[in-house]
Design a protein around this nucleic acid. Sequence first.
DNA 1: AGATAATATTTGTTTAAACAGATATTTATG
DNA 2: CATAAATATCTGTTTAAACAAATATTATCT
Lengths: 134, 134
Amino acid sequence: MIAGVGRAPIIEVEPISLADDELLARLFRTLGEASRLRILEVLMISERATGSTELHQAEIVRSVGLSQSRVSEHLACLVWCGFVSARIEGRRTYYKVADPMVYRLVDLARKLLESNEAGIASCRRIDNAAEGIS
Amino acid sequence: MIAGVGRAPIIEVEPISLADDELLARLFRTLGEASRLRILEVLMISERATGSTELHQAEIVRSVGLSQSRVSEHLACLVWCGFVSARIEGRRTYYKVADPMVYRLVDLARKLLESNEAGIASCRRIDNAAEGIS
DNA sequence: AGATAATATTTGTTTAAACAGATATTTATG
DNA sequence: CATAAATATCTGTTTAAACAAATATTATCT
C-alpha cells in the first residue's frame, strides 16, 4: 500500500519471471569461478590458435593445474550448461566450446572488466580473501 | 613429468594471466545471483520503459522484495563493480545502470540461456536445492 | 582375462557470501 | 533541537559449492 504520502513515483515493475532470474543467475554463476573460466579459456585459446582442435580431459588437466576430479566436475558442469560440448572417443573425452555466443559473452565481459578493473579487484563484498591479486 | 609415452600433443597454453581470470570470474559472480540480477533488471526495465529514470533505494526495495539491508549491500556491490552508478540527493540515493555494455551482456546471456534452459535448470552441480523452478 | 589408461563419482572438509534483524549514520522537516 | 526518513553497517547463522583424496567405472591393449 505504500502509504499515501508522496504518490510513490514508482514504475511498479512487473514481478518479472522469477524463475527466469534464477536461471540467468545460474548461467552467470557457471562462469563466476576462476577455475571454470580457466578451463573455458584453455579451450577457447586452443580453438582460436589452431582452428578447431578439441582437447581431451587429461590435456586440460595439465593446462589448468587443477586436480583431475575437479576438472572432471567442472567440465561436466560446463557441458551440462551448454558452454562446452563433449565427444567421447575410446577412453578419452574431447571437449570444445559449444557455441560462438560463448566467445562473445566472455569477450564482452572482458571489455566491461577493462573499464573497471580496479573496482572489481577491490570489491570487498565479493570474496574477501582472494590473495594478493598481483 | 607426464611420462614419456605419447609425446603429449598439448598446445601448452600459456598459464594465462591468472589474476585476470579471477577478476573476470568476480565480474560474472556479481551477476551470478538472482537477487542482484533482479535489482539490475528493475533498473534496466525502468530505464528502458521511461527513458532515463533513476530509482532510489526504497523504490528498489519495494520492487524486488528483499530486506533493505540486503538491497543496500547488493547495490553497493553493483556500484563498486561498475554495473550501476549512484547519485546522492538529499537523504536518497538514486541508482541507474552505469554502462550500456551491461545491457548487452545481460541480453546476450539471455540468448545463450534460451538455447539451453533445460540444461541449466537441471544442472545438479550448481545449487542443488533450488526449489521447484516453476 | 589381467593390466593400465582415462574419466567419473563419492566423501568429508572448508569457505565465500547470502540472509535477517538490530543498530548506526546521515539528512531533512516540524 | 527532536523526530522521522533513507540508507549504511554490523552480527550471527546458514548454505551452496569448491576442493582433495580415495574409489569406482569404462575402455583399450597385450
